[in-house]
Design a protein around this nucleic acid. Sequence first.
DNA 1: CGCTAAACGAGACGGTACGTCCTGTCTTGCA
DNA 2: TGCAAGACAGGACGTACCGTCTCGTTTAGCG
Lengths: 192, 192, 192, 192
Amino acid sequence: MDERTRQVGRPRSEDARLAVLRAVDDMLVEEGYAAMTMKGIAERAKVGRQTVYRWWSSKAEILLEASAADAARELAVAPGENAQDDVAAFLTALSEFLTRSDAGLAYRALLGEAQHDAKVAALLHGTDVLGDAARALIAQVEDRGALAPTAGGEREVRVAELVGPTLFRTLGGGAAWAPAEVAVLARRFLLG
Amino acid sequence: MDERTRQVGRPRSEDARLAVLRAVDDMLVEEGYAAMTMKGIAERAKVGRQTVYRWWSSKAEILLEASAADAARELAVAPGENAQDDVAAFLTALSEFLTRSDAGLAYRALLGEAQHDAKVAALLHGTDVLGDAARALIAQVEDRGALAPTAGGEREVRVAELVGPTLFRTLGGGAAWAPAEVAVLARRFLLG
Amino acid sequence: MDERTRQVGRPRSEDARLAVLRAVDDMLVEEGYAAMTMKGIAERAKVGRQTVYRWWSSKAEILLEASAADAARELAVAPGENAQDDVAAFLTALSEFLTRSDAGLAYRALLGEAQHDAKVAALLHGTDVLGDAARALIAQVEDRGALAPTAGGEREVRVAELVGPTLFRTLGGGAAWAPAEVAVLARRFLLG
Amino acid sequence: MDERTRQVGRPRSEDARLAVLRAVDDMLVEEGYAAMTMKGIAERAKVGRQTVYRWWSSKAEILLEASAADAARELAVAPGENAQDDVAAFLTALSEFLTRSDAGLAYRALLGEAQHDAKVAALLHGTDVLGDAARALIAQVEDRGALAPTAGGEREVRVAELVGPTLFRTLGGGAAWAPAEVAVLARRFLLG
DNA sequence: CGCTAAACGAGACGGTACGTCCTGTCTTGCA
DNA sequence: TGCAAGACAGGACGTACCGTCTCGTTTAGCG
């Protein structure tokens, strides 16, 4: 016997998996989260309904798998000339992500669903896309010495201060920040 | 002819209206937003289904009517000794509202639904509960001279800075702020 | 005290009564019996819903009132040259009535409804349009000496033999009789 | 490839089909045609609503499927001693069918519905239960030489003469024929 | 001329069936 | 065993009509 369980029966179809993920991506943009159904996803992906249920238990789970990687990539900020630039770049990326990106649309849909469904909330908590990105940026800025190092709850306050304003603006339906607004936010964040 | 249109036909039943609002209030707490259905609301309120549809077009609309007044009341802050106290009181109230109050639960459900449904987004935009409360608090603080007066987009940035961090913490499933954290947030807000 | 109860309050509106009867007549032809509703009748007649329910308890009752007189008139046969002609004239009238006349359409709708609803059956039994017309024709023919006089159950058999064949043909969706067929039927009826 | 289309997906459930037919049979007798609803049928048969709509488009269609075979069986007449007996036996069977049999009750309900709904009329026309039984009996009698052979329209007149009187009596709410009345009708029919 | 009272229109009320849609499960035959 | 297909029981959707009710208005006879 191998150390890994000997595979028996037909192996999972990678084609089917990708077809489902792609279908969810497309349908979210074309029809919106509410109009997306498990039935619709299966039909769009030309996949049996059971195949979808076999591997995912809700459309939120599929959507998370379909968009998590994109989200993390879009929120990563390369170090710039100074801390102020880094924070501004992060806020700009976050703002773009939440208002214009497809992955951001998925994130907003998931965050919305999480307010209705505890399972989705747990799922989303497990992969804290925005928090992780913010923590990375803050570590970067602290390493530069532009902010005093923090940890634990104190660090979480800083994360909330960094992400919160942009999130509030976005969820309320507001537009992305103007460059001048980003500058104000970044400057005040570094004052802390 | 009266200035008001002459009433014709049977007048709307206030009993039915209140029964529906009360049913929605109760069901949200007992069963959650997702489990709440138009059919269930009608049955719980002992009201015909058509009566619900006649006056509201979605459960979001009912929920908004049922909770808007409560929300505004819970977020009002009486002027305290100084600006720092006022801001801290507002952040505490906001934090409690979003994590513990029934009206806050309703607000979170609506904000969530707004991410899925443009109509709800518009509805929610029309009655900007959090923004209005924040603007009132900010005006109060500016009147005290603790912050330089702002207006327009500049003011909206400040609103986002005030409300955003708490909202981010809450929507992500976090607990209410500890008093020390509120103090930090309040102090840094007044630094701006 | 008068023999009739002294009238008090506003008297019944003849306008409303006629508007309802006319609406039912028109709607039966235009939309068919199934599509006709009490609500629709009231709206078409520009009459309150309660006014309809006040005077009639079902659309069948209205339809009966609206068509009974027409039906009786259309089935009356003036004595002709001989018994054969009279019977043929009756069968032709009956055939036309059932296949083409508006009143006949109403009769068929009522006869249909009577198969589903005992109240309508009783209502229809109370005003035996076809039977009455047939009995009148048979009496006329017997008076001429073309058939032996009958009464009671025996007479009812004869009524069924006169009316039945045409009714069967019609309800089954068949066309009106051709003149030659009427002649055959009339001749055989007089053979009895 | 087979001549029949290769079966794909889960096959139709015979259990569900029979449960629906049985429910309709029972409900017609217990509650009557008017009180029978698609919803009620599904619930009684413990079957999903969609399953009913998937295979039948109206309660009339279900009822026809549920009763057509019974009807044909109840109206078949085995050849007796002479033509008079055969006709009398048919009229007796028809009379019993229409006034007492469950299948006859179904037939009357369908004939009634056909007066309101063209689709049902077409459906009923497609399976002419009474006409087919009558044509069989007439052929039998003609083979005996008791009546001159007929065909086409002429034959249809004879069918109407055979079936019509009993149908008229029945639909008008009358009782089944007495034996003496059947004898009269049979004798006069053979006179034609 | 005012009073009483019933009929009138309008339309909201609690109920319930409609026919459609989606859910999550199941049952086929094929790969 | 996975897979596509599609039927299954269940239940919510939003609409329509049911028969009743509650308004303000109208129209008659009586005092």
